[in-house]
């Protein structure tokens, strides 16, 4: 009983982390129909941003998340204006390989700048690394990241439902042509979406930093997890991302308990099966996986 409770707690916390890591990817996919293969690298950059913020100024990423978010919003704008703008109406092949190229570029730029060392930061004071809840061990770093995930997901949902630009984003995501006819400029919406998506990803990397090691190629692990979460929960569905993250967190924790070496393989097997059986995911719109902008 105790072991099951522990697995549930660990699984849910991990799931929150995964959902947070995948949210930016799904937002950008939902609106611009671009699968960003460089998503993991933006997460990696978020982790390094948190590391340097903490090391250089002493601001810990839990408090500094808005700073990271603002900086990464600008990064996202630059990402769209400098690269994705030129590929957005092009065939998928162009988008896949342009973002793959960016992924190689960023990963190796990080390698050149910061070497392959594993870095981590310590935030929680000694004795507070974990707390006991009903006898289950709860790592506080994960708990804070989980709370951040919930807060950000709610904020995004509110933003999309109740602000003008948020509704414009929703409109473009649902029907580009109709949105354009209503006077919405899709290019501005894409710009904002990339800014928002990358800002969330940067913050996600920042609050994950204390519970994961940061190194230049850490993104390639997270990007595949994010793919699984997005496909599992539903393409373009924000609520689905939460569900997908939680499910994956629970499955992975369960498998990890039985055969730790197969944890990663479960991601992929799950991804293949899901894409085959229910490509639009649990909460996604049917046919979303076939959509392109043209």
């Amino acid at each position: 009983m105790q072991a099951i409770l522990q697995l549930l707690v660990s699984g849910v916390l991990l799931g929150g982390v995964y959902a947070l890591g995948a949210l930016g990817l799904n937002l950008i996919f939902g609106v611009a129909k671009v699968v960003n293969f460089a998503h993991g690298e933006f997460l990696m950059l978020g982790m390094f941003a948190a590391y340097w913020l903490m090391t250089l100024t002493g601001i810990n990423p839990y408090l500094g998340a808005p700073i990271i978010g603002a900086a990464f919003f600008l990064v996202g704008l630059a990402f769209y204006a400098g690269l994705m703008r030129f590929t957005i109406y092009k065939p998928e092949l162009t988008q896949v390989f342009a973002t793959l190229g960016l992924s190689i570029l960023l990963q190796n730029a990080a390698l050149v700048a910061w070497s392959a060392d594993y870095r981590t930061i310590q935030i929680m004071p000694a004795g507070w690394e974990s707390i006991q809840v009903l006898g289950a061990y709860v790592p506080t770093n994960r708990l804070v990241a989980f709370l951040y995930a919930v807060a950000i997901l709610l904020a995004v949902l509110v933003f999309l439902r109740s602000t003008f630009i948020g509704r414009a984003i929703e409109a473009v995501s649902q029907d580009l042509v109709a949105a354009r006819l209503m006077g919405i400029d899709p290019d501005r919406v894409f710009l904002m979406t990339f800014g928002l998506g990358i800002a969330i990803t940067g913050v996600a990397g920042g609050v994950l930093m204390p519970s994961f090691y940061a190194f230049p190629s850490v993104g390639s692990f997270f990007v595949l997890v994010a793919f699984v979460v997005v496909v599992l929960g539903g393409l373009g569905s924000i609520a689905g991302t939460i569900l997908g993250g939680l499910l994956l967190g629970l499955v992975e924790t369960g498998i990890g308990y039985v055969a730790p070496d197969l944890k990663e393989a479960t991601h992929f097997v799950l991804l293949i099966l899901l894409l085959a059986v229910r490509p639009h995911g649990l909460l996604g719109v049917k046919g979303a996986e076939k959509e392109t902008l043209k």
């Binding site: 690269l83 092009k90 342009a98 570029l105 190796n108 390698l111």
Partner: peptide, 21 residues
């Protein structure tokens, strides 16, 4: 091992697919 060549390589990859699809 330094990865510097791959930075340029990634950049070229982007250029190629965007300019010469």
């Amino acid at each position: 091992a330094s990865g510097a060549h791959l930075v340029l390589y990634g950049f070229l990859l982007i250029l190629i697919v965007v300019l010469l699809p």
